[in-house]
Design a protein around this nucleic acid. Structure first.
Length: 803
RNA sequence: GCCGAAGUGGUGGAACUGGCAGACGCGCUGGACUCAAAAUCCAGUGGGGCUCAAACCCCGUGCGGGUUCGACUCCCGCCUUCGGCACCA
């Protein structure tokens, strides 16, 4: 027997697979398809780390298994290559980001290939390729055409010293990450996408897909649909009103003051009447230095300032109430103003306590002097003329009706979800294909002129004014209006990284098409994606954005499914040996190349899957890697004990069929760790007999193949089995053969296991009772006592209750 | 503060739908092989009691209660850890 040498056999089989094009999806659309998708990587400068192969191996296992089951499998790969780190690296090292991207991609490619993933490399996609981003731009134009893209004044983070716009990630504790200077909010006119228009459908259609429950919950919470009433509170003595949204119109009688966002425009409108404008301006400044997250973190102490000189009028009591500003009210949610009901809202209660504002109980049920009573399930309305004595739910309905009748308010729906800010003042992104003409406004670049190519620039730094570096290229910016032919300027903002990743899975089905983003035929055949696995961190952005784009493409007839992904699962992170997140600074990063070199790709793959519960994060362990290598060494040595024939005992045959069932099911339910454990047990079984038959060897190798594809192919060949493993069929278990003849049944006395009896699997209660009576140890608990009850679950347990 | 997930041996983790807790690995201990070591193989391994040994007994799935013939699993209350967050009115 040769020594197990993964370096040689892994390279050998990778070459054979490539040459034979084993993993290319077939164009035979008569076959049943299976589309397995992983999140395509961002090719960073650091290269792959051991976290990457975890989800890739998982989906590779499923893809390989489905191929052996006869499916036409599409398991593609590509590069999400636009983005900030590459651009920053380019700025720092004065290398074109294109060049950096190319280098990173080739490194990633080499690494991924060495692990033996069964990707269809012929369909590789790169979001920075003009042939690709032509279609990203095309989708944007369609969105624009349908009125789903619009311009809006939005604040950006702006570094006062670098004079550049910063991403949230680049702002650390209110300071610029690079230079440490103050970061301020600068208002810019930005392109926005109306994802909110799809909010209801994004919630409703979750019912039609098979996502892990926590993903659905998180998306639903993120979209945050709530129904309520929008109503006006008049400003006393002015022909003006504060619009508020409330889900609790039943508590209006308890609204004793109002709070508006510090940024609320009403403040500026009445700045000559407001008596304490200085104090207000100071508070506004204090708030403006805080990020939204900091504003939300300020949970301990409420802050705020009363607006002196302005009062609002409660529309049901007609009483004057004060107006305050506070940072707990945000301009970005609802109307930027609230009616405060301290008796029945915790935040309002805290605020009222701090500033000594009146608390009026309008729902009976708690003690509003101690804490806010927020229960909507029980409680009777009091102190509320129109609705006294009603339950909360009835009161909400009645009050809403009344407000609508009187024209004081109307029922509305509010969402937490905000529209998608689509502009970036950056170089390394897709140019937004619009032209601004003084006469015609924003005009789309004609489709036949796409792609709008990213021009070469000298300097990738954004401009002093916060414009994109593209703004400096006069000859690129200045163009003619496609509509009137007059002078016009190109949009210089680029798209966010999310753009290219919102539709990449569509391109995979027909990646070389230069007429359409993909042919109708290919889209109809391959969609929806059967299984998409990815990280939880993408739940509310990428996953939601791509669902939104897909729904839009469905509406305009490009795709034929309203949802892109039939099934979505997620994986846990791989931590360092010290149980902390892997990072350069912590010095606990493990490079998969080293593992492949020292132990082999099959060992890496096996360990990544055996490491623990796939959905949970787990620490890396070098000893665990060794254990998996040892397992594969034992598998390798099977070649010494092969004999011809079928399973030699009934028990072994049963074990084989049980393992086929277990492994087949576990691979489909993300339980790779227990699938491998079952294969280890089966191997132990073979070894304890000191032999394995060719029939059993075949089954074993096929079952293990998706996890450790190289060693199993090699053994198939070495042992002289017919053909090649990747051409075989997935084994099927026989329901009859997984049944045990004899079982060891646990016997409980008063719920405690006191022994077992060995009986035929289908024994009746009487037969087991007989066995129990033969057992002295068991009888010693029963004799002299009265049997009160006997519980018998066939094939499972026998419990005798005595007194 | 809110939302979500999770707490099981020295360790990573198993345990069907409420039915023998600790599968399979790692580590550790002992043995075989070796001049020796590594590798490999064999045996043992939750804690405690009683044993030459076995049989057997008690305790044990974050904590406190509860439901049940029977609870890692279900219910109520708490504690801790991790992840997400936009004080959502």
């Amino acid at each position: 027997m040769r020594e197990y040498n993964p370096r040689v056999i892994e390279k050998k089989w990778q070459e054979i697979w490539e040459e034979k094009r084993v993993f290319e999806a077939s164009n035979d659309m008569a076959k049943e398809k299976f589309y397995a998708l992983i999140e395509f990587p961002y090719p960073s400068g650091q290269g792959l780390h051991v976290g990457h192969p975890r989800p890739y191996t998982a989906m590779d296992i499923v893809a390989r298994k489905r191929r052996l089951q006869g499916y036409n499998v599409l398991f593609p790969i590509g590069w999400d290559a636009f983005g900030l780190p590459t651009e920053n690296y380019a700025i720092k090292n004065k290398i074109h980001p294109r060049k950096v991207t190319e280098q990173n991609i080739s490194r990633f490619k080499e690494q991924l290939k060495s692990i033996g993933f069964s990707f269809d490399w012929s369909r590789e996609v790169d979001t920075t390729d003009p042939k690709y981003y032509k279609w990203t731009q095309w989708i944007f134009l369609k969105l624009f055409e349908k009125g789903l893209a619009y311009k809006k004044e939005m604040p950006i983070n702006f570094c006062t010293s670098c004079k550049v716009g910063l991403a949230n990630e680049e702002v650390v504790a209110g300071k610029c990450e690079r230079c440490g200077s103050d970061v301020i909010k600068k208002v810019k006119n930005q392109w926005m996408l109306k994802i909110t228009e799809y909010a209801d459908r994004l919630i409703e259609d979750l019912e039609t897909v098979d996502y892990v429950e926590k993903i659905k919950a998180q998306q639903i919470n993120w979209i945050g649909r709530s129904t309520g009433v929008e109503l006006d509170f008049r400003i006393s003595g002015k022909d003006d009103a504060l619009k508020v949204f409330t889900t609790r119109p039943d508590t209006i009688y308890g609204a004793t003051y109002m709070v508006i966002a510090p940024e609320h425009p009403l403040i500026d409108k009445y700045n000559d009447i407001i008596e304490n404008m200085d104090e207000i301006s100071k508070y506004r400044e204090y708030v403006s230095k805080k990020s939204d997250i900091e504003r939300t973190e300020l949970t301990k102490e409420k802050t705020g300032v009363e607006i002196n000189g302005l009062k609002a009028v409660n529309p049901v009591t007609n009483k004057e109430i004060p107006i305050w500003i506070s940072d707990y009210v945000m301009m970005s949610y609802g109307t930027g103003a609230i009616m405060a009901v301290p008796a029945h809202d915790s935040r309002d209660w805290e605020f009222a306590k701090k500033f000594n504002l009146p608390i009026i109980e309008v729902i009976k049920g708690g003690n509003v002097e101690e804490e806010a009573y927020t229960d909507t399930e029980q409680g009777i309305v009091v102190n509320s003329e129109l609705i006294n004595g009603l339950e909360v739910k009835e009161a909400i309905e009645k009050m809403s009706d009344w407000l609508e009748e009187k024209g004081l308010g109307k029922r509305t729906v509010n969402y937490k979800l905000r529209d998608w800010v689509f502009s970036r003042q950056r170089y390394w992104g897709e140019p937004i294909p619009l032209v601004h003409c003084d006469k015609c406004g924003w005009v789309p670049v004609p489709e036949n002129e796409l792609p709008v190519m990213l021009p070469d620039v000298e300097n990738y730094e954004p401009t002093e004014t916060g414009e994109s570096p593209l703004a400096n290229i006069k000859e690129w910016v200045e163009t003619t209006c496609p509509k009137c032919g007059g002078k016009a300027d190109r949009e210089t903002d680029t798209m966010p990284q999310w753009a290219g990743s919102s539709w990449y899975f569509l391109r995979y089905v027909d990646p070389h098409n230069d007429k359409e983003l993909a042919s109708k035929e290919a889209l109809d055949y391959w969609l929806p994606i059967d299984w998409y696995n990815g990280g939880m961190e993408h739940t509310t952005l990428h996953l939601l954005y791509s669902r939104f784009w897909h729904k839009f493409l469905y509406d305009i007839g490009v795709v034929n499914t309203p949802e892109p992904y039939k099934k979505r699962t997620s994986h846990g992170m791989i931590l360092g040996e010290n149980n902390e997140k892997m990072s350069k600074s912590r010095g606990n990063v493990v490079n998969p190349d080293d593992i492949v070199k020292e132990f082999g790709a099959d060992t890496l793959r096996t360990y990544e899957m055996f490491i623990g519960d796939f959905e949970k994060s787990v620490p890396w362990s070098e000893n665990g890697v060794k254990g998996c290598r040892r397992f594969l060494e034992r598998v390798w040595r099977l070649q010494d004990i092969v004999v011809s024939g079928d399973s030699y005992t009934k028990e072994l045959e049963t074990n084989i069929h049980k393992t086929i069932k277990k492994v087949s099911e576990d691979y489909e339910t993300l339980k790779f760790n227990t699938a491998i454990a079952a294969l280890m047990s089966l191997l132990n079984d073979f070894n304890s007999h000191g032999k394995i038959t060719t029939t059993d060897l075949k089954t074993f190798l096929i079952l293990l193949n998706p996890v450790a594809p190289h060693i199993t192919e090699e053994l198939w060949q070495v042992c002289g089995l017919e053909g090649m493993l990747h051409d075989q069929n997935w084994p099927v278990y026989d329901e009859e053969k997984i049944k045990d003849d004899q079982i060891e049944m646990p016997i409980q006395i008063n719920g405690k296991v006191r022994g077992t009896v060995v009986v035929p699997a289908d024994s009746s209660q009487d037969m087991i009772k007989e066995k129990i009576e033969e057992n002295e140890n068991l009888m010693k608990y029963i004799e002299g006592k009265k049997i009160v009850k006997e519980i018998f679950v066939k094939g499972k347990i026998y419990n005798i209750v005595v007194k």
